[in-house]
């Protein structure tokens, strides 16, 4: 791989290349990892269900803040009845998938990196190899799959909480008519464009990217405590950049 005196660009390129190859390795191992279905289920629990609290709380607050801001701006034009619509569209298309992915990288991605990094450092991965268990199929692939499955689900939960938060502020506190709030939303929000292409597709893409980065960083951690610390940091930094850059690319294709 890259040596110490290469410059940043070369090092980053080498990392991206190695990451891409690692993705191929994982994909090749996925059929074998189905034997470890239980492990995948367990990982969905750890990366998905355990992230619910943070995702739900953040979704609620994001929806509430959006509701407040939009009500404030839209009241200038006398268009507060559109609050629900704009909250829903903003959350479905952008904030839902992006914020959930960022939270996921911070909450689940780092723990996956640290966990695999420590397994590497304490020879657990070698021990599995010696027990004729492929660590890619047993450790890497289930965590990767779990992330890819969990992130869209978390994104959906985030969106539902966001709409609920928007409703709470807009209807319950600021007094927009309940029927208006919902009917305007249902008239405008499109299941294909906003939910399938918005929440689901984006979250799925982010799930692949964040899980890959987290697993890759853990798997290639230098077996030291410093190495693990750096690897978790890199997971957050690389995931955040990748999420936002990919979001731009996806949006420009989808819009």
């Amino acid at each position: 791989m890259s040596s110490r005196n290469d410059n940043v660009v070369v090092r980053s390129l080498a990392q991206i290349g190695a990451c891409g190859l690692f993705l191929l390795t994982i994909l090749a191992a996925i059929p074998r990892s189905f034997r470890h279905g239980r492990e995948t289920v367990r990982q969905i629990w750890f990366v998905g269900a355990m992230s619910l609290t943070i995702v739900m709380t953040c979704g609620l607050f994001v929806g509430m803040v959006l509701g407040l801001q939009l009500y404030d701006v839209l009241s200038i034009f006398g268009g507060t009845s559109a609050t629900g619509t704009v909250v829903a569209i903003a959350i479905y298309r952008e904030l839902g998938p992006v914020v959930t992915a960022l939270l996921f990288a911070g909450r689940a991605g780092t723990s996956v990196t640290a966990e695999i990094g420590l397994m590497r450092a304490t020879d657990q991965l070698d021990a599995m190899e010696m027990m004729a268990v492929d660590p890619i199929a047993y450790v890497a692939a289930p965590r990767f799959l779990a992330g890819v499955v969990a992130l869209p689900l978390l994104g959906l939960v985030f969106c539902a909480m966001g709409v609920f938060g928007g409703h709470l502020v807009g209807v319950t506190w600021l007094g927009i008519d309940n029927g208006t709030f919902w009917s305007n939303m249902t008239a405008t929000v499109d299941i294909h464009k906003d939910i399938v292409n918005g929440v689901l597709l984006k979250s799925f893409a982010f799930g692949i990217v964040v899980s890959l980065i987290a697993v890759f960083q853990g798997y290639t951690t230098p077996p030291t405590s410093e190495g693990v610390a750096y690897a978790t940091t890199r997971t957050v930094v690389a995931s955040s950049i990748a999420i936002l850059a990919l979001d731009f690319v996806l949006t420009s294709f989808l819009i």
Binding site: T122, Q124, D126, A127, M128, M130, M131, A132, V133, Y138
Partner: peptide, 30 residues
């Protein structure tokens, strides 16, 4: 390797599992 036992110098137990599951691990896998 399924026919080889290997004792690691630093034990290398799987920290996710308790003692029982660690010992049962090769059996469950194979």
């Amino acid at each position: 390797r399924e026919r080889i036992g290997y004792l690691f110098q630093n034990s290398a137990l799987l920290t996710d599992f308790d003692v029982f599951e660690n010992v049962a691990f090769p059996l469950r896998q194979h």
